[in-house]
Write a protein that binds this DNA or RNA. Sequence first.
DNA 1: GCCTCCATCTTTCCATTGTCAAGATTTGCG
DNA 2: CGCAAATCTTGACAATGGAAAGATGGAGGC
Lengths: 210, 210
Amino acid sequence: MSGKTEAAARARRDSYHHGNLRQGLIEAALAIVAEQGLAAVTLRACASRAGVSHAAPAHHFGNLQGLLSELAAVAFRRFHATIAAEQAAAGPDPRAQLAAAGCGYLRFATANPDLFRLMFSAGRLDWTNTTLAEASRAAYRQLADTVRPFQRDPDDEEEGVRLRTLVWSMVHGYAHLLLEGYLAQHGVSADGLSHLPDIAALLPYPPSDG
Amino acid sequence: MSGKTEAAARARRDSYHHGNLRQGLIEAALAIVAEQGLAAVTLRACASRAGVSHAAPAHHFGNLQGLLSELAAVAFRRFHATIAAEQAAAGPDPRAQLAAAGCGYLRFATANPDLFRLMFSAGRLDWTNTTLAEASRAAYRQLADTVRPFQRDPDDEEEGVRLRTLVWSMVHGYAHLLLEGYLAQHGVSADGLSHLPDIAALLPYPPSDG
DNA sequence: GCCTCCATCTTTCCATTGTCAAGATTTGCG
DNA sequence: CGCAAATCTTGACAATGGAAAGATGGAGGC
């Protein structure tokens, strides 16, 4: 399979210049992570999959960390889109929006565990990468927007920080423990959504309908 | 420094048999992770630090995963002990015990970020390792004991699962986001404990004193 | 249209790591 | 005391990251 896709990649390319290698390497990385996991994403594996020599990625990404950072940026954007899609399908009620965000968070994490792990392995990433930094900020803004209706005072930044931290900790902790298998290990059902905390019920100022 | 400790390790050992190499390699791994981080813990680095050849660890641990699993077992025991120490210093009130457990969780995570990361990278570990599995179970029992007083019905396993999952998600999520730097990245103070959620205040059945 | 420079690749090499196999050495048990 | 097992050492190979030197093509300027 792998040999075949490499042959196909080379067959499609009869010129020294790939033409769009940067994007091709990112797509190769996405394919490898989906098929074989994050550990299989190496510079040589991506180069081979894209049909170039092993040193070609260096020109576009500098090193493996650079490539992984681009991969994480794509992951953050897909993550944001997954949550947005869940929220678009939910009612406008803040409780429904919050629940939808939680569902989206979990859906993305369970559907893409290795991308999720990469996203939250900050030390492996290059945060000077503006694409990555912006994608991460956009995801945080999405959380902030979802939580703001639960603030007593929407202009109180300290209250906002406290609520955002609370909500994010709960959802992220649950997602992380779930996909690492620690909940299943201790007898909690592995059915992803069944034990997702009902965050809205726990927040100190739940806005009522209207 | 490293060359010196290796020379010292070899100097102390004038026999072909190390004598207690298994323990020596674990100690070497602990030293390396503390000084240089988890990525620096390799079979060769540990072997060198312990004063033996690169292939010696295989006899005791099978492979790198085996060594990392023993390292994680030690980490889980230290983690449990940190929480126990915090709880020993707190009052017997369930709220105080819960708060102490949260503090201990955070203290361990911030003092030992790379051991914490290893502990919660389940896929890197060998769960057939009984030492590791037991240490992980003991930590979960500690959580269960701390949360039980908040159950309306201590014999209701489903309520117990729900509360343990809720509490663990909150504390773990906060710790993970904090040590990966994501809270600081989005403007939340990096002071570890300042934004740790007051879990007891959020639980649906907080036991009062007595 | 040609030339030059830059971007984009290829090839080669080195260091490091994990792991395996073969063999050496020591220890413990019968 | 001898033997088997445990515990190491030595050597080798494959894979990976990354650097350096060089090759190739494209674009822009004259």
